[in-house]
Nucleic acid binder design. Structure first.
Length: 275
DNA sequence: ACGAGGTCCTGCGAGC
DNA sequence: TGCTCGCAGGACCTCG
């Protein structure tokens, strides 16, 4: 669910409440969010650890502990983080997967309705390998249009699929891929190696503009996503194509097309504006 | 090695 | 009203 702007929003909202806090104890409701770690190792690794930092990498939240380990939270489609000062709401309690009691009486909660999310507890070396396997951050100052074109332009895969491939560039998921391709007027189904340098420059600019704007709006809320303060985001009101299939294109009035033929994900575009 | 497609989950809305 | 089906902000894995 959450893409870069949503995770960035959550991390910014929660960082002040978490820095310096110690985790007294933690509980896990389901094991199916674990992959490379056992429940015992995860909970043992959290107990007594202090939180040194909370940051974002790609679409993931990273809790750095004073033990040198990092708790990496991949929210998947429906995961969110919150810090609760009081009893959880019924819905929060029902879908809470990880609950970590903090030394100030509050509680850090990972809530995930579908539990497609994943929790990882990584050593320093494991973190380095994890980080290196991910592509560059799209909003980094050094991530130029040239680097973008060079990374993505070698593939014969559809440009939309490549844009969402976290090995090439991180943080862009289905919503923002649709929006960026519309803004750059590029047909999502075109092979990436057919996209010209000028088109890559436009896509690079639009992707960064849209991600930045979405962070300013605190993300896009369709269903599960909430900011770190529990509010809905506002970028859903600024979407030009995602969720608007059958409605008129904002630029030319043509009815927007929906297809699932690219990577099995819903793709909405204007067949007249995007080539 | 690459690309297509399935898999993990639950909830919700559409259609019958 | 009560079903069944398809789809949903992601990531990983297995086929051919």
């Amino acid at each position: 669910m959450p893409e870069l702007p949503e995770v960035e929003t959550i991390v910014r909202d929660l960082r002040p409440a978490l820095l310096g806090r110690t985790i007294l104890r933690a509980t896990l409701s389901h094991d199916d969010v674990l992959r490379d770690v056992t429940r015992r190792r995860l909970l043992g690794g959290l107990r007594g650890a202090s939180i040194v930092d909370l940051s974002r990498r790609a679409k993931h939240a990273v809790l750095e502990l004073d033990t040198g380990r990092r708790l990496v939270i991949q929210p998947g489609m429906s995961g969110v983080l919150l810090v609760a000062g009081e009893a959880l709401s019924a819905a929060d309690a029902k879908y809470a997967v990880l609950r970590a009691a903090l030394d100030d009486g509050r509680e850090l909660v990972y809530r995930d309705v579908r539990r497609l999310g994943t929790l990882l507890l990584l050593t320093e070396a494991e973190w380095r390998a994890y980080d290196e396997a991910l592509g560059p951050e799209p909003l980094d100052a050094g991530f130029t249009a040239e680097r973008f074109a060079d990374r993505l332009g070698r593939s014969r895969q559809a440009i939309k699929k490549v844009l969402m491939d976290q090995r090439f560039v991180v943080g862009v998921g289905n919503i923002y891929a649709n929006e960026a391709l519309f803004a750059a007027r590029i047909d999502p189904s075109r092979p990436a190696n057919s996209v010209s340098p000028g088109e890559f420059a436009a896509l690079h600019g639009e992707m960064r503009r849209i991600l930045t704007s979405a962070i300013r709006s605190k993300g896009t809320t369709f269903r599960d996503y909430r900011t770190g303060t529990g509010a809905k985001g506002n970028f859903q009101f600024e979407l030009l194509v995602y969720g608007r299939e059958g409605e008129p294109c904002r630029r030319c009035g043509t009815r927007l097309t929906l297809t699932h033929l690219i990577d099995g994900r819903s793709t909405v575009f204007c067949h007249r504006c995007q080539h």
